[in-house]
Amino acid sequence: MMSAAQHAEEAQAAAEHVGEAEHGADEAFNAGEVIIEHVSNSSLDHPILHLPSIAGIDFSVTKHVMMLWLVAGGLFVVITLATRRYLKQERLVPTGFMSALEWLVQVIRDSMVLPNVGPKFVNTWTPLILTLLVFILVSNAIGLVPIFEVLGLVDRYVLSNAADSESLINSVLHGGSTTTANYNVTAALAIITFFSIIVAGTMAHGFVKHWKNLVPSGHPWPIYILLIPIELMSMFVRPFALTMRLAANMTGGHIAILSILSLVFIFNQVFESALLGTGVGFAVAVPLAVGISALEIIVVMVQAYVFTLLTSVFIGMAINVHH
């Protein structure tokens, strides 16, 4: 039984491999597959670093986990170094990158956290909001930069490695690099928001009072039978909306860009002439893709801003309860 299952699995893998080889051989272009490949996470079956499963959860390091670490590590190094250098110098006024960072800290504190959360808890929640903002912003933006695609080109044509070799570079090529386009990631971030709201309410009012604050007081009891479930569901709806908005916006933008760029290859096949197809495709697709990329830059910033703004609004709602 066991060996049969193993055998079947092996056979399937072998078939897949043959299929891939054929796919590579006849160079047929499937736009949908390519786009999904560039937007979604790398397959769990071929992780970059295989780790054991704990309690049925596969902790293997996939492309998106690696991107998370890259973004987090980069942010930590850059921001901490800049801050340390700034704090070490004698002058009060920051320069260069630090002035931008300080401007960001000041703007977030004074115009996002302070009006929503109130003066009492500003310094408690500003670090969370700032971390969320820079993390989401950089995660969003890094997807617009084709680092791995360039790496892949270098690997393929400069180092002349085969497309299916087992090199590290080749293994990081699969999957998209925008972690925030994966709703697992945005759901995790929304869960952070979800628990931050509870922690904020508990810190401000105490644990029991926080849950009481969820429902407006001073109504006859039959209303509460209706209100309590609705409020409880609202509690889950908010992080769900955060999750879906961010993931959908990021995925949508990338799909739009990739679809338009796919026109080059589709025209190639339609016209059955590489020169004509590529020429027409370039003329149509590249200006459009540039336009959408420009739009994406705005979307990247707005979505990071909206996520953090809504987080601070929710935290503020838990702290400053209006009745």
Binding site: N41, L44, I57, D58, F59, S60, V61, T62, H64, V65, L68, W69, A72, L75, F76, I79, T80, T83, R84, Y86, L87, L101, E102, V105, T126, P127, L128, L130, T131, V134, F135, T179, N182, N184, V185, A187, A188, L189, I191, I192
Partner: peptide, 27 residues
């Protein structure tokens, strides 16, 4: 992808802790 979900939470919490301690707090 529960693995990615948990990795995200862990990564974010570690980043939050480190940045709050070494960057945002002093800033």
């Amino acid at each position: 992808d529960p693995g990615l979900f948990i990795w995200t939470i862990l990564t974010f919490l570690v980043l939050l802790f480190l940045l709050a301690k070494f960057a945002w707090g002093p800033l």
